[in-house]
Design a protein around this nucleic acid. Structure first.
Lengths: 212, 212
DNA sequence: ACCTGAACACCGTTCAAGT
DNA sequence: ACCTGAACACCGTTCAAGT
């Protein structure tokens, strides 16, 4: 039976998995390190060995979230056939699906930036960046996978003549913004499920218009 | 001198004002009812008379935020002259300015929805909407002022022939989504200040293109 | 009508100590 | 190398009691 096996073996993975579930089912306010430790059957101090503080756990969740989002969007594009508008719609639909299923996680992924700086406000060496923190390195790297995926879609559209020429980086930024904005309206309950299809279709149509 | 004047007179307004400042300067994690009470010079139980719980305070902040955002966007449009693209750019720029100055507040305005439902999960009478809560009535009403402002801009563009005809409601939703998406990238630190002008210009150009 | 202050059940974080 | 358990300083919320 082994009441307390190894040192739990893979506490880090267990904490992350349980955290993902709690986040999905009960929201971020219900996410506590002590509670996760309880569910994993370890003492409340144990998580410290794997996550320096609560923010480190949230960063790890955001990182995994970005990796999964990038994967799902890419898979949707790859499975959408040849028609370019259909590929755009598939990317947007996959993004919205992620937002619907993991609203709190997506908020977490695009949140942060504001919380931690307060501590360092009095700290002279960090005073210059006290109000413009960047996401942590690992989170940023994972979020760039999403940008790369969308960038590939943009480049393909320009090659096929379905998108206007010009700086692909600017178009990529605008498309990510649009996708994230739709997701933000969905997670905040300002878009009904019945409106999503139209919004996705309009997004694809908007980007494939020709300049006047 | 009057150490403790009336009953503080306008505790509600004082709490809201201080909360707005804390939110701006230190982020949402630093926002505590007990701390606000301390700064207002009242006991920690006093805020309860004006805000039933912490969420009620956050709702009031979000409500005020939406009213101010709608006002600022409308003022920017009204002050932008006759050129329609310039009016679009002014609206987008005002939105981004709000996001830059009050990042945490904007996140709060488009957040929520997920946190409160957990409590009612076991409650049979509320089981049906346990995973799709709407923003509180007052917040929703204030957020609709933003939608109305953007809707007026859309209608004007269609009348002037600067925007394609069709359901103005759909176009409005897409424009709000785009603005909120840009803001989300800004508040999460994924758009540099130097990229904002191009993004704003590209947004205006995108919407005023003609269908191919 | 508005506020106080004790009480309760939670947190995150720290750190000496164990295995 | 990993985990325990006491300790500390905070929370939000409740509620009898005061003015």
């Amino acid at each position: 039976m082994a009441d307390r096996p190894y040192h739990h073996g893979n506490l880090r993975a267990a904490l992350l998995g349980e955290a993902e579930r709690t986040l999905r089912e009960q929201g971020i306010d219900a996410l506590s390190l002590r509670d996760l430790a309880r569910q994993a059957g370890v003492s409340h101090g144990a998580p410290r060995r794997h996550f320096e503080d609560r923010q480190a756990l949230l960063d790890a969740l955001a990182e995994a979230g970005f990796n999964r989002l990038a994967d799902e969007v890419r898979a949707a594009i790859d499975g959408a056939g040849e028609d370019y508008q259909a590929r755009l719609r598939a990317a947007a639909a996959a993004y919205v699906r992620f937002a619907t299923r993991d609203a709190a996680l997506l908020e977490l992924m695009f949140g942060a930036k504001n919380a931690k700086n307060a501590k360092n406000a009095n700290n002279a060496e960090n005073a210059n960046n006290a109000e413009n923190a960047e996401p942590s390195g690992a989170v940023r790297a994972a979020s760039e996978r999403l940008f790369t995926t969308v960038g590939d879609l943009i480049r393909q559209g320009q090659q096929d003549g379905q998108l206007p020429p010009g700086d692909p980086g600017r178009l990529r930024l605008l498309l990510v913004a649009t996708l994230q904005g739709i997701a933000s309206l969905v997670t905040s309950g300002r878009v009904q499920d019945s409106q999503v299809d139209a919004l996705v279709a309009d997004t694809a149509a908007l980007f494939t218009r020709s300049p006047r």
